[in-house]
Design a protein around this nucleic acid. Structure first.
Lengths: 140, 140
DNA sequence: CGGGATCCTTACGGATACTG
DNA sequence: CAGTATCCGTAAGGATCCCG
C-alpha cells in the first residue's frame, strides 16, 4: 500500500529507534524537503492553521451552527476573526454555508465530507498534546 | 476510559452525525471556549507551529542530526529560521541539544521522550491531509 | 442577524552579513 | 561548523464602527 516507489531506500537506520519510516513518509508526496502546498501534511496544517481554527472545527464537529451560535460558543472570538476562519475553511472546501430564507437572515455552517476527515486529526492533536504533557510532567 | 467526569452532558446530538463527542473532548481540559495554553490541543499545535516545524521534526524522527545535517536535508531553510525552530522545540522540551567536544564544534539534536510522542501526530497529519485531498478530488 | 470595512500593532519568515 | 546580529516586508490577530 505504499504504491510504486521501486527500491525502498527510505528505510535505513533500521533498529535505531524505529524500524522504518514508511509509516511516517508513506509515499513520494511526503518526501519533500520544503513546505509544498500539495503535500498532505501541508493540506492538514492549512486546515487547522490560524488561531481559533481548531475550536471552530470542534464546534462544527457537533453539527451545523449559525454564525451567532459560533460566536456564542466562543465568546472571546471576534466577528472579524470568525469571518476570516470561516472564509478560509470555505475556500478549502472543508465547510459549506447555507443561507436560510426569512428575516432576520440566518446562515448555517456545516462540515463537508472533506471537513469531516479532520475529526481524527483533532483527536490526534488532543492525544499527542496529552502525552507530551505527561512526558514533561514533573517527576514524583 | 474517559476518567471521572460524572454526568456526561457532552453527548447530546446522538445520532446526528456521530454518536458522541467523548472521543473529541475526553475531559475538562478540552472543554475550553478559547485557546488556552494548558489545553492539550494547544500544546500539540505549539509543537508543530511555525513554518518548517514538521519537516524538522520529521528529520529528527529518523534519529539525531547536527545543525548542518538538518540544513543539508532542508536546503531552502535558512540558518536563522532553523535556529528559531530548534529554539522553540528546545524551549518546549521536545528536543535536546548535545555539544560534542572537539573542533570544529559539532552539535547534535535529538528528540526527547516528549518529542517522540509527536510521531503519531505527524502520521495523523499526513493521513488527514491525504483523506481531505481524496475527498476533494475531482469526480471522474 | 451576519457580516464588511478600516486601522493598528505585533509576530513571523526570509535575506544578508558577520563571529567564536 | 554552528550559530548570532540586523533589517525588512508581509501577514495575522484583534478592536471598532458600520451596513443590508
Amino acid at each position: 500500500m505504499v504504491g510504486t516507489h521501486g527500491t525502498s531506500e527510505a528505510k535505513r537506520l533500521v533498529g535505531h529507534q524505529t524500524e522504518t519510516d514508511a509509516e511516517l513518509v508513506p509515499d513520494a508526496r511526503g518526501r519533500t524537503n520544503r513546505p509544498e502546498p500539495g503535500c498532505p501534511v501541508e493540506v492538514a496544517l492549512a486546515a487547522i492553521s490560524g488561531r481559533w481554527a481548531t475550536l471552530v472545527l470542534r464546534e462544527l464537529m457537533h453539527g451545523p451552527h449559525s454564525f451567532g451560535e459560533l460566536r456564542a460558543s466562543l465568546p472571546s472570538l471576534t466577528a472579524k476573526v470568525l469571518t476570516d476562519r470561516l472564509g478560509e475553511l470555505l475556500a478549502q472546501g472543508l465547510i459549506a454555508k447555507d443561507r436560510l430564507p426569512g428575516f432576520p437572515v440566518r446562515t448555517s455552517y456545516r462540515l463537508t465530507e472533506a471537513g469531516m476527515e479532520l475529526r481524527p486529526l483533532l483527536i490526534a492533536l488532543y492525544d499527542a498534546g496529552s502525552r507530551v504533557l505527561a512526558a514533561l510532567a514533573p517527576r514524583d
